[in-house]
Design a protein around this nucleic acid. Sequence first.
DNA 1: ATGGTCGGTTGCCGA
Length: 262
Amino acid sequence: MRITTWNINSVRLRAPLAVQLLEQVQPDALCLQETKCPDEHFPHQTFIDAGYPHIAIRGMKGYNGVAIISRLPFTSTDSLDWVGKQDCRHISATFSDGIELHNFYVPAGGDEPDTMKNEKFDHKLKFLEEMRDWFTANRKPDAPMVLVGDLNIAPLEHDVWSHKQLLKVVSHTPVEVERLAAVQNGLGWIDTARHVTPETEKLYTWWSYRARDWAAADKGRRLDHVWVTPPLGDKIKDSSVLRDARGWEKPSDHAPVTTQLG
DNA sequence: ATGGTCGGTTGCCGA
């Protein structure tokens, strides 16, 4: 099974790029974040025509929004609310082989890494706490699961262009990294990208729109992740970032990440 | 130290 995750930053604007991605990578399932699209306006037919007729969506006007677009049928789908908000940040689907796929868009958290001054940062930390609590309360480590998404945290030193310069920048602060580690340790999730690429090697999935030349500056962060539970650990065959996609015409600021299982 | 660019609930907010 091949799974791709991509923060598309508007599915209506970039549906043609998503089709290009499907043709190039040929995943079994594509998980999108920041679709920014109410369900009634989702471009279903574009994906059906591309050979991906199984679609689970949870979107709203203007903000957030997630989708799972699949070549394979689902046996069930679900969407959960987090931190008491109906803000379309999670969708899940189960496949006939029993694998349960969870797609998340974790809150970005604003600019100031101080919960007293910035309620968005508080929301982000609470969201991560609820993720840990939900999985530990409702699922066991021996369940075959995949967790993907824009987690908006670059946990490791070489997940950012400068560890030192980003220690106080939201996405790489110690408190967020610790909360994300708590989610990961809850069920013993395996970070598939770092299973394949050593921790000493720089690895990014996001580059700001604000850079004059994003590729030359290469001031990236690894915000997008694919995790699997222990039963799927020895099925990890590959993990790759499609950096080229960041250089496409009218790109998303995130690049797609693909993990090959089995 | 600051500002830089995107997308959509556009002349602002969130990222």
